[in-house]
């Protein structure tokens, strides 16, 4: 189900590493047996970058029945933050630190029909979904978008399995994707669930078109790795006059954690910006509120009247001389 268990880290051993296109590499590793990795799952991997250790998420392309053998595909990014360079350097026998398969992009049974939409390396997150929809005899289309065929991984495998259900959209062959018609052409008579994975720009275009056609937002599924705000996390001050409390929220701590450490008894549950239990009223703010939750609507966020303290933060005012961010709350 959706309530993802906490990541549990183990050591895994690379058993195969080979290129599938110029820039995409397939890495298979073995880890302790558990359960088969479900479609839509990913693993977090500890990568070494020039800036030190960091964590990256990679979608699972293939899993053995007991989940002991997992395959991911990694694109060497042009503006890499170092993760893909590390992954591309792995050779058979190397050890990596990774989590169990984690789920936040679950394929659900019960939709009238399905559309799988993948662009570029986004194919890795949905390839297993396609296999399952095929096996279950579901009504689906598999739309795969790329710049050129040479850069598109797994095309032959997909064509062999999906036949006519596969639609290749290749920019340099003049068949690139028209987002507007993709959404407009979905049948109105029944519902379609869309599972998409690709560049943010494309997913955002689909999302906007989806909403403009008044389609139910629950039917559009995509994965965002981690809640990324508009600004890099930075330290800011917080104050609750009623409690006579004032403290600093460090860049690697949440507002909720800082307030609790300072002795405030705050209400919360999910700590993922979903439930809204931690919503608190803002009485004043210096700087910009970086709303990182999915509880408040866009309209509510625009007013800056409240924020969800488990994930949201304050960024310094645009005018760099005005000092760090500062937040005053009312209970």
């Amino acid at each position: 189900m959706s309530s993802d268990p906490r990541p549990a880290w183990t050591t895994a051993r690379v058993v195969e590493s080979r290129p599938v296109t110029d820039r995409i590499r397939r890495v298979t590793f073995e880890r302790p047996a558990g359960r088969r990795a479900a479609p839509g799952t990913h693993v977090d991997v500890r990568v070494r970058t020039p800036k030190g250790e960091d964590v990256r998420s990679y979608s699972i392309v293939e899993s053995s029945a007991d989940g002991s053998r997992l395959t991911v595909s990694v694109m060497r990014a042009q503006a890499s933050r170092g993760g893909s360079v590390f992954m591309h350097g792995l050779v058979e026998g190397d050890e990596i630190e990774c989590t169990q398969p984690l789920q936040n992009f679950e394929l659900r049974h019960g939709a009238h029909r399905y559309v799988v939409l993948a662009a570029g390396v986004g194919i890795t997150a949905v390839i297993e979904m396609g296999r399952v929809l095929h096996r279950l005899g579901q009504d689906y289309r598999f739309v795969y978008v790329g710049r050129s065929r040479a850069q598109m991984a797994y095309v032959d495998e997909l064509a062999a399995l999906h036949g006519d259900r596969l639609e290749l959209r290749v920019d340099d062959e003049g068949t690139g994707l028209d987002v507007e018609s993709l959404v407009a052409d979905l049948p109105d008579d029944g519902r379609a669930e869309v599972y998409m994975c690709g560049p943010i720009r494309l997913m955002d275009a689909v999302r906007r078109s989806w909403l403009s056609h008044g389609r139910p937002i629950a039917d559009l599924r995509f994965e965002t790795f981690g809640s990324s705000g508009w600004f890099e996390p930075e330290a800011f001050e917080v104050e609750i006059p009623e409690l006579g409390l004032s403290t600093v929220v460090a860049s690697d701590a949440s507002l909720l954690e800082a307030l609790a450490a300072a002795g405030a008894d705050m209400m919360y549950d999910c700590r993922k910006g979903e439930c809204g239990l931690c919503e608190v009223t803002i009485s004043s703010v210096r700087g910009r509120v970086d709303h990182r939750d999915v509880f408040l609507s866009d309209d509510e966020k625009a007013t800056d009247e409240t924020l969800c303290i488990c994930v949201s933060r304050i960024a310094a005012p645009e005018d760099g001389d005005a000092g760090t961010g500062r937040l005053t709350l009312t209970l």
Binding site: S2, E274, C275, G276, S297
Partner: peptide
């Protein structure tokens, strides 16, 4: 509420 928790299922 105005939104729907995406984890609710």
């Amino acid at each position: 509420q105005q939104t729907v928790n995406p984890s609710a299922m």
